[in-house]
Amino acid sequence: MRANYKVELTSGIFLLMGVAALLWLATEATDYGLQIGDDTYLVSARFSNVADLKIRAPVKIGGVTVGLVDQIVLDAVTFEAVVTLKIDQQFADIPSDSSASILTSGVLGDRYIGLEPGGAMDALTDGDQILITQSAIVLENLISKFLFNTSSKGSNE
């Protein structure tokens, strides 16, 4: 043997460490671990305002990620934002009358879609639309509303 055992062993360890580093980074430091499986179904929801919701933002039920935002388009007729949600097939029993709202993680954090399960017997299936939606709360609107309300209250008194 020309390559002695120590050399083979060391290069073997090096190769394994390299692959381990790749895997560790991929699963711990990227969204690889958060990606949902290939087995998914699509549902849509209409919002009057999605604010800064982004594609690939998580879709959560009770704080647990069940899917992600696949597509955001504007309906040219009604001027509503149509958001397509890609949901993992293992959560196939979400009631059809569930509601979707655009929420914010933390005060200034990223937007995500929260689903609130309803009580219907039949479940959402591929191509369905979520009818009850609540648009994003835009901070500027909230503040201006608050200022407007307090000033009008003040003038009433």
């Binding site: 790749l22 430091a29 990227t30 969204d31 690889y32």
Partner: peptide, 19 residues
């Protein structure tokens, strides 16, 4: 620290691009 990494770094673009 970790959740920002996991939500912000795209496996296909950021990670594989570097590879």
């Amino acid at each position: 620290f970790w959740s920002k990494l996991q939500s912000g770094i795209l496996f296909s673009k950021d990670f594989m691009g570097g590879v």
